[in-house]
Design a protein around this nucleic acid. Structure first.
Lengths: 232, 232
DNA sequence: AACCACCAGATTGTTGACAATTTTTCCGAT
DNA sequence: ATCGGAAAAATTGTCAACAATCTGGTGGTT
């Protein structure tokens, strides 16, 4: 352990610590509710507290960390309610992204997305324990749609500010049986609407897709109130 | 000048500098594209560079500042294109907020919002140079709707992360002739839909309202490419 | 005159020490 | 035994100095 981060000239130390910590949080090495102690972390990564605090502030911007004055930072721990709210936000933003993408997406990107879905289909039939790949692949589809919408502000908000949070919670739940197949089908329908340049339909289908995902998440978290580890 | 910030026990120095800088940016004391020089600012506010850098990172999270490694931070300067993208984002998020608010808002808050719109009507008839109040008042309506939606994540994203950016650009443009009256009318229609608990209609009306505001902004910025001051 | 290398000044990135606050521990009182 | 409070430890907030990087200008070369 103690993977001391070396300073590379193209990037800043704070930036590297940020990326390292973000990965640790998403992959669950740092658990929801866990306290981020500055002395411990700065020792672990071989960095002084300055860049470390900088990194923590950036994690806060991506909502992976919440911090209170004089009491430090903790890995975010969404309640069930907040997790469902996240889906409502996605429904709004990604619906709009689909509407815009219907006009803005290029024929090349449409074809490329079709290939991506073919890969997903193969991965699903292959199944076994490839669960991880399928989940990341699903996000890939949404990610690339955001980029194709032509609205860089929307794309940034989703891809940089909020998808990391979603990925973090995806790591904790494996897919429901039958959900990947269903999602793939819905993705294909969305892509069809985009190919027909039908913005109304594309938005409608994406919103329905995300409502389905939300319902799925609601089912899978029916009992537990706080999703991850307890805080404090 | 040199409004030295004193440390209060309830809040941190970085927090106070953040608030001061945010206000300075929104009100135009720091202009779009202007460089934030750490030595100068830390001297001006009587704070060392540590808390100052902290404050700058928080401004970055609210998209009021953009910074590149080794080259410092600048006040954000949206292009016309990016300003219009901001409206597309608002259309998505605030549409969803209206849909949710139709179910979640209380009768008391509905009545209170009605009074707010009465005040706006009075302010408009009063007119004269009260332009500033009307603009902030308009945001008040949207702000309170966000809180009333019951989705705290959506409300936070709008009120904390993105409204400051919008307020900054509002300071630069006074309202178009006739636009406040039109906006008030649209607000009343939205409130009616909420009172009828009609989520579909409320969303539709809000989206149309923001599309109108977007068109208005597009008209008023037809010539100039970068909105504020040039950068560098 | 235009272009490149180099040097000086300014600015950002990083560090370790110090101050203030919070949390924990331990002790005594009820 | 439990509760409250004071001392001690740990953690966060702040600072000033040092190192690395960028910026702008100077001078020399072709």
């Amino acid at each position: 352990m103690a993977s001391t981060v070396a300073r590379s000239s193209t990037s800043t130390l704070a930036d590297q610590v940020f990326k390292t910590l973000q990965a640790a949080i998403i992959e669950g090495a740092l658990k929801p509710g866990e306290k981020l102690k500055e002395p411990e972390l700065s020792a672990r990564y071989g960095v002084s507290r300055g860049p470390l605090r900088d990194a923590i502030r950036r994690l806060e911007a991506r909502k992976l960390v919440v911090s209170a004055p004089n009491s430090g930072a903790r890995v975010v721990s969404l309640t069930r309610q907040q997790l469902l709210e996240l889906y409502e936000m996605r429904e709004a933003l990604e619906g709009m992204i689909c509407r815009l993408a219907a006009s803005a997406i290029s024929d090349e990107e449409l074809a490329s997305l079709g290939q991506l879905l073919d890969q997903h289909e193969a991965a699903i039939e292959d199944s076994a324990g490839r669960d991880y790949f399928r989940q990341e692949g699903d996000l890939d589809f949404h990610f690339r749609l955001a980029r194709a919408s032509g609205n860089t502000l929307l794309a940034d908000i989703l891809c940089q500010d909020h998808y990391p949070l979603l990925r973090m919670y995806r790591y904790q739940f494996s897919a429901s049986p039958g959900r990947p197949e269903r999602a793939l089908y819905e993705h294909r329908r969305i892509l069809e609407a985009l190919a027909e340049r039908d913005g109304d339909l594309a938005e409608m289908l994406m919103r329905k897709h995300i409502r389905n995902a939300r319902r799925n998440a609601a089912e899978r978290t029916k009992d537990e109130a706080p999703i991850g580890a307890m805080k404090g």
